[in-house]
Amino acid sequence: MGVIQCEDLTKFYGKIKAIDHLSFKIEENKITGLIGRNGSGKTTLLKMIAGYLKPTSGELNVFSGKPFNSLAVSANSIFIDDTMTFPDSLTLSDILTEVAPFYANWNSSLANGLFDYYSFNPQQPHSNLSKGTKSTFNSILGIASRCPLTILDEPTTGMDSAVRKDFYRALLKDYLEYPRTIIISSHLLSEIEELLEDILLINQGAKCLHLSVMELKELAVGIRGNAQVVLSFVEGKEILYQEDFTKGSLYVVIRRNLIEQQFELIKQSGLELFPVSTDDLCIYLTANTKGGIGDVFSRG
C-alpha cells in the first residue's frame, strides 16, 4: 500500500499548467528524491501532497485520503521549506517547545540535541536568522517531528557544505532508527543520492522517471571518440546528450539498454565508455534541447 498515490494529477495556476497529468506511487518508509529543474513543479506537487493546494484534476491520495485541507494528513505530515514563518514573539527555543505538542511523535531530546549541536542562540527570533541558519533550524523541526510523511522542500537552501553533510547524516540516522516516508526535493542530486532510495524526476510538471537510485546509475552510458565512429554506433537511436569537442571528437550519452550488446565492439573501435553521473543524467533528461548551453556560443 503506497503512502502517496497519484493518478493523472494536474494543477493549473490560472492558465499556467504547473503539474501535467502526473501519475506515480510512493511506498511507505522510503526516502524519495524529487528532482527537477527550476519551475518544473516540484514545490507545487509537494504542497498538494501536504494539503496546501488543491489539485485541479486527477486523483491524489495521501494515507488513502485526499490531502487538501485534511486534518489526518496534516497530523501525519510535516512540510519543511525555507518560507516557514514563526512569530517574532517566540524565540527559537520557544518554537521547539510550542510546536512539539502538535506532533505526536515529536522527539524533544533529539530536537534539543540538534539545536545545541548547531549552537543556535535560544533567545533569537526566527525572522532574524540568515538563510542558511533558517534552513538548518527548519530541518531540526523536520527531523524531530518524526512525521510518518516528512516533506522537505529544498531543505538545504543556503546551508554551507559542512552543515549540509551534518543534515544528511542526521536525517539518515534518525530515519534508520525511526523509519518513515521522506520526500526531499533538491537540485543537488549528487549530494543526496547516497541518502535516497528512489528518485522521482519531473520535468515541466510531467513525470520523467521514477526508479531507484541504483537503476538510475545504470540507466545511461557516455561514449567519446571520433565523431564519425561514434555516430555510426548511435545512428537512429535516441541520443540524450551530445557535445562536440575539438579535432572531430564527439561525446554522446545514450541509454545503456540500447547499446549494451555493442559494448565490446565500441571498445575495439577505440572509443571510450563512461558512466554518467545521476546529476548529469537528470540534467540531460530534463534538457529542452540536446546540445546544452555550449550551443548558444557555437552558433554562427
Binding site: 514573539s89 520557544d94 532574524n128
Partner: peptide
C-alpha cells in the same frame, strides 16, 4: 528598531 519582546514579556 527590531526590539523583540518574547511572549512571556508580553
Amino acid at each position: 528598531v527590531s526590539v523583540y519582546i518574547s511572549w512571556k514579556g508580553n
